[in-house]
């Protein structure tokens, strides 16, 4: 069965243009690049230079793998999916918190060495690998999802897409912890046990704003999760590879709920009488 030729021809031409563009944008030939990589055990270590060839479309993780294969076989790096979906390969590239697998070399200045360091907010383990276990411990402290009784006799619920949208933004999180890395409360003050950090506040937000969840976590957000430490510098939002509007959509609405619950006794009384959850002030997703 033949297709509509002129229509399909447009697709082919457009595809060939794109292919040709990708051949020239990054250059088809290879060139040398220098990578200044943190090597060390625990807290001690230093930056070491490695030279490797750079070709079309490579990302920083490709260069790290090449360097491993070319001799630095014990260079430690976490990675899994190599497609920006698992959040394993977080590091600092030229000082910026990024995913190694989603940072193309064509966007970096290869005239200078590319610096690759581990996330500095976390205790170093080896080379580019850090101890991120505090994030997993923090999640255990946040009370789990607790739904209202099902809406239908078959045990299912009804939920409008518009209500789903709001928490789906938070549930996009790939747990790369780059937001934790850049948060000054964690990075500069190392308050990992007092403040759960932006990642876990996003987690709390998806629970608190989940259309089916009935718990109210505002007390512990204030008392044990340290939401007051966040002073909304929005650095976390800037580095999020999933483009979650962490501060505006997750943290600020949670802060407002905490304020309502703790400093507005009349509102609290009304809620107690109605038996409902916190006032729904989190309208930040309207974009």
């Amino acid at each position: 069965m033949a297709s509509n030729q002129s229509f399909a021809q447009n697709i082919v031409e457009s595809g060939q243009r794109a292919a040709a563009r990708s051949n020239t944008s990054a250059g088809t030939e290879t060139r040398a690049g220098t990578f200044r990589i943190w090597r060390g055990m625990g807290a001690s270590g230093q930056l070491e230079d490695y030279s490797t060839s750079v070709s079309e479309g490579m990302v920083v993780l490709d260069a790290i793998h090449q360097i491993q294969a070319e001799g630095a076989t014990d260079l430690a790096v976490r990675w899994n999916c190599k497609a920006g979906k698992c959040g394993s390969c977080s590091a600092e590239i030229n000082g910026m918190p990024r995913l190694l697998c989603m940072t193309r070399l064509s966007e970096l200045d290869l005239e200078k060495p590319v610096t690759v360091e581990p996330m500095r907010a976390f205790p170093p383990v080896k080379d580019l690998v850090t101890d991120v276990s505090s994030n997993f411990r923090a999640k255990k402290r946040i009370r789990k999802f607790t739904p209202r009784p099902p809406d239908a006799p078959d045990g299912t619920w009804r939920m409008a897409q518009s209500d789903a949208d709001r928490v789906q933004e938070f549930r996009k999180c790939i747990e790369c912890f780059l937001c934790q890395d850049v948060c000054h409360v964690l990075r500069d003050h190392q308050l990992h046990e007092q403040f759960v950090g932006p990642r876990l506040l996003v987690h709390a937000a998806q629970l608190e704003m989940h259309p089916l969840d009935i718990l109210d976590r505002t007390d512990e957000l204030k008392e044990s999760h340290g939401i007051g430490y966040c002073n909304i510098t929005k650095c976390c939002t800037k580095v999020c590879p999933e483009h979650i509007t962490i501060t505006d959509n997750a943290i600020i609405p949670l802060k407002e709920r905490v304020v309502d619950n703790h400093y507005d006794p009349i509102a609290k009384l009304v809620r107690l009488m109605r038996g409902s959850k916190s006032t729904d002030t989190g309208q930040g997703e309207a974009r």
Binding site: S3, A8, A26
Partner: peptide, 28 residues
Amino acid sequence: WPPSVRGILVTEGVRGEGGILVNKEGRR
């Protein structure tokens, strides 16, 4: 393409949403 991403999955969902396959002669 590019070579370093060769093999990364492109979901069947693209075709589920109406995506079509065409060869260089424009034939489906």
